[in-house]
Design a protein around this nucleic acid. Sequence first.
DNA 1: ATAAAACCTCAACTAAACTTGAGGTCAATA
DNA 2: TATTGACCTCAAGTTTAGTTGAGGTTTTAT
Lengths: 155, 155
Amino acid sequence: MEKSKADLPPRELSVGEVAARSGVAVSTLHFYETKGLIKSMRSRGNQRRYPRSVLRRIAVIKIAQRTGIPLADIQKALYALPDDRQLLASDWERLSENWKADLNERIAKLTALRDQLTSCIGCGCLSMRDCPLRNPHDTLSEKGTGAYLIEHAGE
Amino acid sequence: MEKSKADLPPRELSVGEVAARSGVAVSTLHFYETKGLIKSMRSRGNQRRYPRSVLRRIAVIKIAQRTGIPLADIQKALYALPDDRQLLASDWERLSENWKADLNERIAKLTALRDQLTSCIGCGCLSMRDCPLRNPHDTLSEKGTGAYLIEHAGE
DNA sequence: ATAAAACCTCAACTAAACTTGAGGTCAATA
DNA sequence: TATTGACCTCAAGTTTAGTTGAGGTTTTAT
């Protein structure tokens, strides 16, 4: 049987190998480590050695980043997981559900903005004063929830 | 008639007034000025004086920022416009059409990501190796155009 | 006329997410 | 064995979008 092959403990990866396979720079891996996003064992000579599961972890980090989640938040989310085991499907499910909610919010916000932009063009809105989109009381804060309209700065 | 009233040249605004009306900090107005996004005249005592049209300009800047356009790009777009006149409907139309295109791209990208996230959850994707979403050849670069899928880092 | 509020400039600081470089060590190869 | 490439640490630099503060001047209100 292929027992001997199957049982070879999967070799650990050097930082360069991880960089090559994951597509992130070595310096970024160092950086992620300082931020607590990933961890490493060290070789006798103090060089970083990673279990292959780090690749999945990095993939998850990248996905989360694409959704717009800041690294600090990603770190918090990953921190809960023991770093010595693979991310399980259940972990991923939990994480991605959260991030998806975030993403949906962001999408909704941008979509609303686009629609406002569209009607604003239609109505010559920025000539202002009588723009039907007027809604000065919506805040501009990035975190605002409701639909939010172009405000006209009192002009 | 209200001639005397109507003909009063609209008073220029101080930086504090602009800040109050536009909702951006005085320091931000200074900053925008250094970046060439807005301009000011000076009073005898060297204090900034703005035409009321600056408010519209700032409104446009804020809208553009919300769409995710970096200030440098906003500057370039506004630079074409003489800063001593109001943004006309036609200016606005041109600008917002461009920005809308950008916005649509961003929305499309995020939407694709969300959908991938969804199917990824459905298929237990992050357990990887057989994920139907696999599409390693798409780059991750922010500027990528095509639909772009979760790549699996060679795991 | 005088005090307070608003304004001025310039330099330095902040935060996020990295990158670059200096000075030195480790490991794979000829 | 020796050299080269990969690695190490730590400090400093980069970009974006501002904010903060020091030290000084102008405007406004009393």
